[in-house]
């Protein structure tokens, strides 16, 4: 098996893409779960404000999602552009 430089670079890009998206998914997953957890607790205490709480939860989660999207973008760049 002759290993060439281009091949090693591609291999590293693929591994990097996998590691980027894999590790990058941990934080948003846990963080968004926590946001939703507190929203559930809050609605349990104050069901009338369910609409407001859901909106706040979704905005907070969207911000927390951004790092997951950064990881996705980097993974796609590594796979298709670099």
């Amino acid at each position: 098996m002759a290993i060439e430089g281009v091949d090693i670079v591609k291999a590293a890009a693929f591994l990097g893409a996998g590691i980027s998206m894999g590790l990058g998914a941990i934080g948003p997953g846990v963080g968004e779960g926590m946001a939703a957890a507190k929203a559930c607790e809050a609605i349990g205490r104050n069901p009338q404000e369910a609409g407001l709480l859901t909106r706040t939860m979704l905005v907070g989660q969207a911000v927390s999602e951004s790092t997951g999207i950064y990881a996705l973008v980097i993974a796609l760049l590594l796979l298709f552009v670099v």
Binding site: G18, I19, M21, G22, L23, A25, I26, V30, G33
Partner: peptide, 20 residues
Amino acid sequence: AAGICMGVGAIGPGIGEGVT
């Protein structure tokens, strides 16, 4: 990398959904 990506990527959502 596909295996590592899916394996590691499943940890966070699993815990987060459990917390919710």
